[in-house]
C-alpha cells in the first residue's frame, strides 16, 4: 500500500469533475421541488440531455451548441411531465418514473446513429496566471467551463431563492399552493417553469457526461446518476449550499475509494464500493439527528396535486 501516491490536490480537482453531472441535475431538481413538484424522472431527462447534446455537438462541431441543445431537450421532455402533472393532475411519483422509462427508451432510439463516434472536444479553460498558483490553481482554475457553470448555477439558485421576489413566490407555491393561489400567484405557471428549469439542468448534467466526462454516446450511459441527484436534493434538505456539499461529498468519496483501490489499500473492495452510499447516509443521519437545526423538512406541498377548486 502506498497512500503517498494519492495527491490530494488532484483528488479535489477530480472530485469537482466527478460531481458536476449530479450537481447540475440536483440543482435543477431542487428548484422543481422547492416549487412543490417531485419529479422522479431525472434519470430520463439526463439521458435525453446526454444524447441531444451529443448529437447536436457532433452535427454542428460545437460543444456549446451541444450543451444548449441538451438543456432544451431536457426541458422539452420535462414538459411532458409538466403537462401531465399540472394540467391533467396526474400523480407525480408515477409520472416521474414513467418519464424515466420513456426517456431511456427514447434516447436510445435517437442515439442509434451515434455509437462509436468521438464528440468535438471541449477545451479546458486553463486561466493563465491563476491556474499556476500552487495548490489553488489546479483545484480552482483549471477546469472546463461547465464546472464553473454548475457552480454559478448553484450560487444563482441560492441567491434567487433567498433574496428575490421570484424566489419568494417559488417557495410560497411549494409551501402552500392554496394560499399562494389565493394571493393571486399563478401556481401552475410557476411550477411549469420550475419543472422546465429542472429538465434543462438535468439535460446539462447528462450532456456533461456524454460530451466531457466520458465522452461518448452509449445507451443507458447515465447508469443511475439521476437517482443519485434525487438523493442529493433530499440530502441537501432542499438548500442550494447543502446540495453542493452533498454532490461534492458523494463525488469525493467515489473518487477517493477508487484512489484507495489504486493505491492498494487493504480494505475489501466491496466495502470500498459501497462507501459513497453508506457515508452519504451516515452524514445525513448525523445532520438530521441534530435537533437544534430547525426545519429539515421538505416543502410542505411537495408531490401534492394542485387544483384551483375555488
Amino acid at each position: 500500500m502506498d497512500l503517498s501516491a494519492i495527491n490530494p490536490i488532484l483528488l479535489v480537482a477530480s472530485l469537482m469533475v466527478a460531481a458536476t453531472p449530479i450537481l447540475l441535475a440536483a440543482v435543477g431538481e431542487l428548484v422543481a421541488e422547492k416549487a412543490g413538484v417531485l419529479n422522479l424522472g431525472v434519470e430520463g431527462m439526463m439521458i435525453t440531455g446526454a444524447i441531444c447534446g451529443f448529437a447536436i455537438a457532433v452535427e454542428t462541431g460545437s460543444p456549446v451548441m451541444g450543451f444548449l441543445a441538451a438543456a432544451i431537450g431536457g426541458a422539452l421532455l420535462s414538459l411532458i411531465f409538466g403537462v401531465l402533472t399540472q394540467y391533467l393532475l396526474s400523480n407525480q411519483v408515477a409520472t416521474g418514473l414513467a418519464l424515466t422509462l420513456f426517456g431511456l427508451g427514447f434516447s436510445s432510439l435517437i442515439g442509434q446513429g451515434y455509437i462509436g463516434i468521438k464528440p468535438p472536444s471541449t477545451e479546458k479553460l486553463d486561466i493563465p496566471l491563476l491556474s499556476d498558483i500552487p495548490v489553488l490553481g489546479p483545484i480552482l482554475f483549471n477546469h472546463d467551463l461547465m464546472v464553473y457553470v454548475a457552480l454559478a448555477l448553484v450560487a444563482a439558485v441560492w441567491a434567487v431563492l433567498k433574496f428575490t421576489r421570484t424566489g419568494l413566490i417559488l417557495r410560497a407555491v411549494g409551501e402552500n399552493h392554496d394560499a399562494a393561489h389565493a394571493l393571486g400567484y399563478k401556481v401552475v405557471r410557476v411550477r411549469l417553469l420550475a419543472i422546465m428549469f429542472g429538465g434543462g439542468c438535468a439535460g446539462l448534467g447528462g450532456a456533461y457526461l456524454s460530451l466531457i466526462r466520458v465522452p461518448q454516446w452509449t445507451e443507458g450511459m447515465t447508469a443511475g446518476a439521476g437517482w443519485i441527484a434525487l438523493a442529493i436534493v433530499v440530502f441537501g434538505s432542499w438548500r442550494a449550499g447543502r446540495v453542493l456539499l452533498g454532490a461534492y461529498l458523494f463525488g469525493g468519496v467515489t473518487v477517493l475509494q477508487l484512489n484507495l483501490q489504486a493505491a492498494g489499500m487493504a480494505i475489501p473492495v466491496e466495502y470500498l464500493s459501497m462507501s459513497p452510499y453508506l457515508i452519504t447516509i451516515a452524514v445525513l443521519v448525523i445532520m438530521s439527528a441534530d435537533k437544534s437545526r430547525a426545519a429539515l423538512s421538505a416543502p410542505a406541498c411537495l408531490g401534492r396535486v394542485f387544483h384551483a377548486s375555488s
Binding site: 414513467a98 427508451g105 434516447s107 436510445s108
Partner: peptide, 13 residues
C-alpha cells in the same frame, strides 16, 4: 428494445 421501453412509457403517460 428501446422502442418497447418508449412504448411502455407512453402507455403509462
Amino acid at each position: 428494445a428501446a422502442a418497447i421501453q418508449a412504448f411502455q412509457g407512453m402507455l403509462l403517460f
